[in-house]
Design a protein around this nucleic acid. Sequence first.
DNA 1: ATAAAAATACCCATGTTTGGGTATTTTTTT
DNA 2: AAAAAAATACCCAAACATGGGTATTTTTAT
Lengths: 193, 193
Amino acid sequence: ALIDGIKLYVQYEDDIGFMGFANNGRDLLDLVARKSPDVVICDIRMPIMDGIEATRLITKNYPRTRVIAFTMFDQDDAVQEMLRAGAKGYILKNSSLKELLNAIRRVAAGEEYYDATIVPNKSAKTTRDNILTPRQIDILKLVALGKSNQEIADVLFIGKTTVETHRKNMIRALNLHGAGELLRYALEKKYDY
Amino acid sequence: ALIDGIKLYVQYEDDIGFMGFANNGRDLLDLVARKSPDVVICDIRMPIMDGIEATRLITKNYPRTRVIAFTMFDQDDAVQEMLRAGAKGYILKNSSLKELLNAIRRVAAGEEYYDATIVPNKSAKTTRDNILTPRQIDILKLVALGKSNQEIADVLFIGKTTVETHRKNMIRALNLHGAGELLRYALEKKYDY
DNA sequence: ATAAAAATACCCATGTTTGGGTATTTTTTT
DNA sequence: AAAAAAATACCCAAACATGGGTATTTTTAT
């Protein structure tokens, strides 16, 4: 779905060729081995082998291939891991396709590219890190299990309305929209155990 | 959270020792390398390296260590992959702790153990496979992105009520409870892209 | 000790999801 | 061509979540 949009868009650019896509880290490594692309756009969250591990292996074994990290949310620690794993750029899924092209060209040219909406300065980054309180994280862990506010309240022996407040505050703090996005965020943030 | 319950429960059994736990596949492999446990209870869904890959590596490199697959949902294809990867048993997260002890003892003794609620015969298994229709899977993919019924309706150019119907039918067909569990199921089923 | 931050819990109106239906049209299979 | 399955869409009431508040208590930091 998302990849189709990227493929369509990228195909009209004659300096960029679409070489294929993979649904998981293992297939991605196979693809990189076969096609030796200049640039790989790599989702952080993938089945079989996640984007961080895949990026590590790609930059180690195929140094000519550069990796751009691609994710749903602006999650600082995962970004840091991707950069440590060797990613040369970072864009969000709600970045525009123009921005994507920009990122591909810059990174292909040996530069680095980071989504303008994030990492503008260090202070903003550190704020982003401890954006959730310990208690909110407790609740997020249960959100990650697919539990409702009432169920979470029962587990933690607090009122249902308290859980609602925490959930609301988290949604606001993270700039999300709806329960679904919060759950996805929780899972992407690895609160899922 | 879940692991604490298991640890507590298992500690009272004097033929079973708790040797530690890992939050991701990489740490799990380290742990297995250091402790050489008889049995590993391995979640299918894990960050860094998923349970299938971890199981493959464990059974390959540490043949004395036996793996029991552990997951939230009865998802036939993932189970098959775990068994192909070398798992010797399979239990659900809503299996009782008694059943867990049973599984550990059986598998430690060299037997195999499969949750009684599943895999009773092949016919039931194959039914479970194509339990969702193609259209339902279309919708589940969007559910996996955290989208609401209205948003899904907009993307697919169908009515909101139609999406609601599909969602309801899926929840019923899969024996789930609530939007959260459906989203978790979608992600665990790897509809997340 | 005092101020700030976090956790607790509720009010309200609005909107969404659930779970129980029914019903029509389209597609696929026999 | 007829039967079965899938997709479409709606009704209804109950439950749940959102987003806007406010307010009290508890914990942490200064």
